[in-house]
Design a protein around this nucleic acid. Structure first.
Length: 204
DNA sequence: TAAAGGATTTTCT
DNA sequence: GAAAATCCTTTAC
């Protein structure tokens, strides 16, 4: 197992961290066992000025974790039933993070199948809430350091050849099925007030 | 293959 | 009271 990413890895521009997390290994150790996968899709949330970021609503009980130390987990509950996991970026006080959107299962696949129920293997972790279910990630891990903890991210051995980096407001789903493609931050996405575009109706 | 709608509860207005 | 960084099933083409 490669070393866990250092805290300094996360204390950089969020867009850069999002790109560099592609290919890294997300691993979660629980009493039920170990499950891990290669990160193949990420999404950057840039701060209070990014209307798609939870921090756009300001500092609240829910978003407190976003303001934490770089390299800690921001895990939130949404739609009444799903957990989603982020890696907090930049120094404490700057509420930005990278949402982990999809994994290629690598370790503990039997456990993932058990947790996810009767789905195709390709659907085990190809979504932000699916991967949390597959790895056993819940809000109990919110705020934990992503180094030397049950939830860790390790150096990967190679950039995946089928992945997508996703930036705010340019939602792309089903990434695992798509070829590698970088989507650059568009300057007009970062300043203009907006509502997040429905994922199913965006580009392509 | 795509679109539409329901599930379910926290959060903020 | 409405929306939500989603997922799954059903229905339509």
């Amino acid at each position: 197992m490669a070393a866990a990413l250092a805290a300094s890895f996360y204390d950089r521009r969020t867009e850069r961290v999002a790109r560099d997390l592609l290919g890294a290994i997300l691993r979660c150790v629980t009493p039920e066992g170990v499950a891990a996968g290669r990160i193949v899709e990420t999404e950057a949330y840039l701060g209070e000025h990014d209307a798609a970021c939870h921090a756009a609503a300001g500092r609240t009980a829910r978003t407190e974790g976003l303001y934490g130390e770089p390299g800690t987990a921001y895990v939130y509950f949404t739609y009444g039933m799903h957990w989603c996991a982020n890696a907090v970026t930049r120094r404490a006080g700057l509420p930005s993070a990278v949402l982990i959107r999809a994994l290629e299962p690598l370790e503990g696949i039997a456990l993932m199948r058990e947790r996810r129920g009767p789905v195709r293997d390709r659907d085990l972790a190809n979504g932000p809430a699916k991967l949390c279910e597959a790895l056993g990630i819940t809000g109990a891990l919110n705020g934990v350091p992503l180094r030397r903890s049950p939830l860790t991210i390790h150096h990967g051995t190679a950039v995946p050849d089928r992945a997508v980096a996703v930036t705010p407001r340019i939602g792309i789903s089903k990434a695992v099925d798509r070829p590698l493609r970088w989507v650059d931050i568009r300057s007009d996405c970062l300043s203009r007030p907006h509502r997040p575009t429905p994922r199913s109706r965006t580009s392509r």
